[in-house]
Design a protein around this nucleic acid. Structure first.
Length: 168
DNA sequence: AGCAAGATCGGT
DNA sequence: CCGATCTTGCTG
């Protein structure tokens, strides 16, 4: 069953663990492939100094302020596309960075493998024929730890256990 | 208008 | 550990 606003419209810290074990589908040239989501990271509000929303609403992060269920894609280090899912009811900027799929560990590697780029910015997971998410494994084991690559955020943000992984 | 830094990755 | 590579958003 395809997930939509009912699922993604909740707080990012509620959605994050539930997204583990769900299946991300990608259709390219008429062929559809599904991948289990194994790792995500939560970015929550303007007060989160690790989030792109820490400077407030800008042209890049504007989509984070939308109601949950849209795709937020951006380029990092001039070469890697990062795939994020917007969550929450809207107004408060929230997003989940997809860091790993079964078979594709690493946020930059998975977007390269699935051919996801800036053309996916704002894509609606409830309506898109290119990318969507469906229910998957029920109640998988989940491990929480601190987020990667955001030491610049300082405490307490760099220490928040907002990274969720499948298993132990 | 200029510039530093980045939610990363792969090779030394 | 270092370079790649380019966009963003701050600073002046």
């Amino acid at each position: 069953m395809r997930l939509s606003g009912d699922f993604f419209g909740r707080d990012v810290l509620v959605v994050a663990p539930e997204l583990i074990g769900k299946k991300l589908f990608r259709n390219k040239n008429g062929a559809t492939t599904g991948y289990s989501i194994v790792e995500v990271e939560a970015y929550r509000g303007e007060e989160d100094k690790a989030s792109h929303a820490r400077f407030g609403k800008t042209s890049r992060n504007g989509i984070m302020y939308a109601p949950g269920g849209l795709v937020y894609v951006y380029l990092i280090y001039g070469m890697h596309w990062m795939l994020n899912i917007v969550t929450g009811p809207g107004e408060q900027p929230q997003a989940l960075l997809i860091r790993g799929l079964k078979g594709f560990e690493g946020p930059g590697r998975l977007t390269r493998a699935l051919e996801i780029d800036r053309s996916f910015y704002g894509e609606d997971l409830a309506l898109s024929s290119r990318i969507w998410i469906e229910t998957g494994e029920e109640n998988p084991a989940i491990t929480q730890s601190s987020r990667i690559g955001i030491d610049y955020a300082g405490d307490p943000w760099k220490s928040m256990a907002w990274r969720y992984r499948l298993g132990g």
